[in-house]
Structures are given as C-alpha cells and as structure tokens.
Simulated scan of single mutants.
Amino acid sequence: MATMKSNNAAIAAMQQMLQERCIAEPTFAIKMANPSKSMEGAVNYLCGQIQKSGLCCVDDATVMNILVHYFDENEIEEGGKVNCNIVVSKPELSDEDKAELKEQAMEQYKEEQLREIRRQSAPKTQPKPTATAPKAGAEINVQPNLFDF
C-alpha cells in the first residue's frame, strides 16, 4: 500500500488496535484473515465513512468501530480511494498547555494556603457564658424590701 508518510503512524496505530482486538477476541482474527479483506481496503473504507459523516476528526472508538465493521461484514463496498491525510493525535501536552496548567495549579495552591492561614488566624470562638440556676440551699441575691418584717 503506497501511503503518504504522515499516514504511516496512523495506519500503524490502527493495525495495533486491530491486533489487540484479535488477542481479546480470537474469532476476529479469522475475519481479518479473509482474503477479500485488506488493511488498504479497511483504511479506504474508514476514510470514506468519515468523509460521508462530514466529520474531520474522530476518536479511537469511532475508528475501531468502523474498522471492525469493515472486517465483520462480507458485503461491504469499499469505495474508491479517498484523498485524505490521516494523523494520530498525541496525548502529550504542548509546552503552552503545560505552562497554563502549572499556572492554574499554582493559583489553586495559593488559594488553599490562604484559606488555611485565615482559618488558623481566625479568633477562636469562646463559649458564651450561660446563666446557671442557683444551687439548692444557696441564697438568692434579692434586694431588701422595706416592708419585710
């Protein structure tokens, strides 16, 4: 299969996904061994299906579903070659993304530290004095009455 260099990594990733599927589901390996099926046909079918959908970017699960469907079904029209460029997204973050995430983490850390300092320096709440009833037998402080005899 003659492919552009940018497609090679994507095709290798798809082959890896299909190999993992064969390990997990050995009967799928039999379907992939069908002489009327090929990786080139699978890639052409994949590109055609994505083009029909109008999407320009799809996730791994969608790619896998389309590839499995291609190998599962005997009566699939591959269609012609689609002139497209296939790339694999990398899970790595750009330096700009890393810097932004680091800044967000530092800001969150500062806020947490400030909250902790405020909590520690806040005046401790003193229990409110409560009125207690006089003990039994204790005199009650009463103002003297002039008319007491």
Rank of each mutant, 00 (worst) to 15 (best):
A2S: 11
A2Y: 09
T3G: 02
K5S: 12
N8Q: 13
A9F: 01
A13I: 00
M14G: 04
M14C: 12
M17Q: 06
Q19E: 10
Q19L: 06
E20S: 07
I23L: 10
A24W: 01
A24C: 00
E25W: 01
P26K: 02
P26G: 04
T27Q: 12
A29C: 02
K31E: 05
M32L: 11
M32G: 04
N34H: 08
N34T: 09
E40G: 12
G41H: 01
A42W: 01
V43T: 11
N44I: 03
L46K: 03
G48E: 03
G48T: 02
G48Y: 05
G48A: 06
G48K: 09
Q49V: 05
I50A: 06
I50L: 06
S53Q: 10
C57R: 09
A61G: 08
T62E: 09
T62S: 11
T62Q: 13
N65T: 11
I66T: 08
L67Y: 01
H69Q: 13
F71I: 05
F71N: 07
D72A: 00
E73L: 09
E73V: 13
N74D: 15
E75K: 10
E77I: 11
G79Y: 04
N83T: 07
C84N: 05
C84Y: 04
C84M: 07
V88T: 10
V88W: 00
V88F: 00
P91I: 00
E92P: 00
S94N: 02
S94D: 04
D95N: 09
D95C: 01
D95R: 08
D95A: 11
E96F: 05
E96Y: 07
K98N: 08
K98C: 10
K98I: 15
A99R: 04
E100R: 15
E100N: 12
Q104E: 15
A105C: 05
M106A: 15
M106K: 15
E107V: 14
Q108D: 14
Y109K: 15
K110H: 13
E111Y: 11
E111M: 12
E111Q: 15
E116I: 05
E116W: 05
E116Q: 14
I117P: 04
S121V: 09
A122V: 04
P123E: 07
T125A: 13
Q126P: 00
K128Q: 12
K128D: 07
T130E: 12
T130P: 01
A131E: 04
A133N: 07
A133L: 14
A133V: 12
P134I: 02
A138M: 09
A138R: 06
N141D: 11
V142M: 11
V142N: 07
V142H: 06
P144R: 13
N145S: 10
N145T: 08
L146D: 08
F149A: 10
F149K: 10
